[in-house]
Design a binder for these strands. Structure first.
Length: 204
DNA sequence: AGTATGATTTCCT
DNA sequence: GGAAATCATACTA
């Protein structure tokens, strides 16, 4: 499986998000068995989006979006990670999209574990069944051992953590639906999931 | 099966 | 001061 190159991400999150479905998240650090998950659910966030981080941080004079300490990396070069703490407890994994200087990203919301399940289970003691290992954005970062300390703003185009094109990816039926857990911009159908897949976090 | 609530931190108004 | 791209648990039926 080959990592997607940075150029793959240098366009709108709305194009990248559905194209990632069926392909893989690979985590292969030293001393730990390799973990692989097939992406089954994503969400797109763009600059022109009330749900975008820092949407409210606008210059009162010009209306320009401000790069705040939290959001600056969303405006950086494409193909890098944006790891964000939500509700004080959970890390969410995004990949930065759009050309350098434009803000945008794709949230990885759910994966189906393909490899390294034995290494995921100890990270997810609350998971009673394997489906609970990675069927949510906070769950999959736990299963894969991803936090901001090591994995924020690193390239997702090379080991140890990368997104890879899976030539064996099955043909998919993709569903568009409103994004989960947001209030502003909630009507935009910018969530993409594999139809009927058991690892999708919330039924569309 | 469905609904309600607490945990806990960072950032913006 | 309060909201936030969530999850696990504890209820009710």
């Amino acid at each position: 499986m080959d990592p997607f190159p940075a150029s793959f991400y240098a366009r709108s999150a709305l194009e990248v998000a559905p194209e990632l479905l069926g392909h893989c998240v690979v985590h292969d650090p030293p001393d730990v068995p390799r973990r692989v998950g097939r992406i089954v659910e994503t969400e797109a966030y763009t600059e022109d989006d009330p749900a975008f981080h820092g949407w409210n941080a606008r210059d009162p004079e010009t209306g320009e979006l401000q790069r705040t300490s939290r959001t600056a990396d969303l405006f950086g070069p494409p193909g890098r990670s944006y790891v964000y703490l939500i509700y004080g407890m959970y890390w969410l994994l995004n990949v930065v999209t759009e050309p350098d200087g434009i803000g945008g990203g794709v949230l990885i919301r759910a994966v189906e574990p393909l490899e390294g399940l034995a290494a995921m289970r100890p990270n997810r003691p609350a998971a009673k069944r394997d489906v609970d290992l990675t069927n949510g954005p906070g769950k999959l970062t736990q299963a894969f051992g991803i936090d901001d300390e090591t994995y924020h703003n690193v390239p997702l185009t090379e080991p140890p953590l990368y997104l890879a094109r899976d030539s064996e990816a099955p043909t998919l039926s993709i569903v568009r639906s409103p994004r989960i857990g947001i209030t502003k911009g909630a009507e935009r159908p910018w969530r993409f999931s594999v139809a009927g897949h058991p690892y999708v976090s919330v039924k569309p």
